[in-house]
């Protein structure tokens, strides 16, 4: 039996380490947006300051505070036409933040929700696409009632609750902000 030479192991390890580093949150999110909008040709990323009034209204409607000071927004276009939006956001898990993206069509109905980073041992079931697909079609004025509109998850009570409120909060925020334009 031929064993790998140490140098080959080192090469292998060196290849693995940067693969890990390359997966930045922005790149990962944008790769998902490419899958959701295969026909789009422009994904414009913007970092915006939170609008104080819209923030307050979104927090009241969702009963959840923003975790970050800024809004990370993609405007997705096909030719000149805007066909969708996406917002990257955090909610607080038990200890670590959960980073997720909410993707909207141009009428601001939810097209998809995806978890970008889940950093906890417990509650990982919120990453399940079939659970996240329940948000499809929701708009800012939807109720987002966990247990009725959205199924709860055993063993992920806090994460499921935080995400449900988070998607509501972002939906209200973008409806106020983008709705004004």
């Amino acid at each position: 039996m031929k064993y790998p030479k140490p140098i080959n192991l080192i090469v292998g390890l060196m290849l693995m380490i940067p693969m890990d580093l390359s997966a930045g949150i922005g790149e990962e999110t944008e790769a998902i947006l490419h899958q959701i909008f295969p026909g789009a040709d422009d994904f414009e990323f913007k970092t915006l300051e939170l609008d104080h009034q819209a923030k307050r209204q979104a927090e009241i409607a969702s009963r959840q505070a923003f975790q970050m000071e800024k809004i990370f927004l993609w405007e997705i276009r096909s030719g000149e036409e805007v066909i969708g939006f996406a917002v990257l956001d955090n909610v607080q898990g038990k200890v670590q933040p959960i980073t997720y993206v909410v993707v909207y069509d141009r009428k601001l109905a939810v097209v998809a929700v995806r978890i970008i980073r889940y950093r906890e041992q417990y509650g990982g079931a919120v990453q399940d696409p079939s659970w996240l697909d329940q948000f499809k079609g929701f708009k800012a004025d939807s109720k987002f009632l966990l247990g009725a509109d959205i199924d709860g998850i055993t063993g992920a009570t806090l994460s499921a609750n935080a995400l449900t409120r988070g998607v509501k909060r972002i939906s209200v925020y973008v409806s106020l902000l983008i709705g004004k334009d």
């Binding site: 940067p18 390359s22 949150i25 790149e27 990323f45 970050m68 933040p97 980073t99």
Partner: peptide, 20 residues
């Protein structure tokens, strides 16, 4: 080269630090 070869035109400099 891998970290710079994502094929996207956007730059997300500092985003990971802003998010976490």
């Amino acid at each position: 080269s891998i970290p710079f070869s994502g094929g996207y035109t956007q730059t997300f400099a500092g985003l990971d630090q802003l998010v976490f």
